[in-house]
């Protein structure tokens, strides 16, 4: 009886869909996963090569750490400074530009800090700080969080001084941060793809975009200690080759292109 139960459970576990013979583990960001990009491009890669891609979606900081430990074969992340350090420290075999989009400043439609329509991120952040309007920060060492901190620096504002006041460090992913911002009526920095696919907007609106400093480039990294190095190389080449570029450019959210190869 017990034996039969255990063998039944093993059968249940052993046959999930996606248990293909060949696979690559890709550590990537929550923004790419939640936007639906992988749902669009991965089936094309699998069709081309027969290799399944297992996506572990975490913040860029954690994705880089997973790569350092050799627990992923490839990375798709967005923090150029961190990526370059990863390569310099010998954790990556190769790094290539994959695609880019941009960050946008989200906030309550009532806009207490009067930033709507600005195209200067630093000016917008200074106004938010001056108005002491609530700002929801990722606070999770993700690529978006690291970019946000660079923008504050450029604005000449030290948000840490207002921690617990108008500046709220949430320590969560992009979606949860937007959920919280919607509840608080707070401003937040988001990547365009997550914003475009986000459903719980309530009174939030896109207020500031178009600053060059808000560019959000994604890099693909081949992990030096990849467990499946050959298949990982195939993925790396495909993603940055003509097939991958076409797949990325063809992805739309409500008719809007949100990633540019």
């Amino acid at each position: 009886m017990t034996l039969r139960l255990i063998s039944l459970l093993c059968a249940l576990l052993a046959s999930p869909a996606g248990a293909a013979d060949r696979f690559v583990v890709l550590a990537s960001t929550t923004s790419t996963e939640q936007s639906g990009l992988f749902g669009h491009i991965l089936p094309m890669f699998e069709l081309d090569t027969g290799i399944a891609v297992r996506v572990v979606a975490v913040g860029t900081g954690q994705a880089l750490k997973i790569g350092m430990q050799g627990d992923a074969d490839a990375l798709l992340v967005h923090d150029r400074v961190g990526e370059d350090r990863f390569i310099a420290d010998g954790h990556g075999a190769d790094r290539r530009d994959v695609m880019y989009n941009d960050f946008v400043l989200i906030g309550p439609a009532a806009d207490p800090a009067k930033v709507a329509g600005l195209t200067d991120a630093a000016l917008a952040l200074r106004r938010i700080a001056d108005a002491k309007a609530p700002f929801a920060s990722r606070g999770d060492d993700s690529g978006t969080h690291r970019s946000e901190l660079r923008l504050w620096k450029a604005a000449g504002v030290d948000p840490k001084a207002a921690e617990g006041g108008w500046y709220r460090e949430l320590g969560s992913g992009m979606g949860p941060t937007l959920n919280t911002a919607a509840g608080l009526g707070a401003y937040a920095l988001a990547d365009r793809a997550t914003w475009a696919s986000f459903r719980n907007r309530q009174s939030l609106a896109l207020l500031v975009q178009g600053d060059k400093a808000m560019t959000n480039p994604y890099g693909g990294i081949l992990v030096a200690r990849a467990r499946n190095p050959d298949d990982a190389r195939l993925w790396h080449d495909w993603l940055t080759g003509p097939r991958g570029k076409a797949a990325i450019a063809g992805f739309r959210i409500d008719g809007e292109q949100v990633f540019f190869p």
Partner: peptide
């Protein structure tokens, strides 16, 4: 598990993901 679609996505991690997408 890593919440990998089709491999390690469970009911609870799927709920967590949909919450992240704002699809309450």
């Amino acid at each position: 598990g890593g919440n990998i679609k089709g491999l390690t996505r469970t009911m609870t991690t799927a709920i967590s993901l949909e919450t992240s997408k704002g699809d309450l």
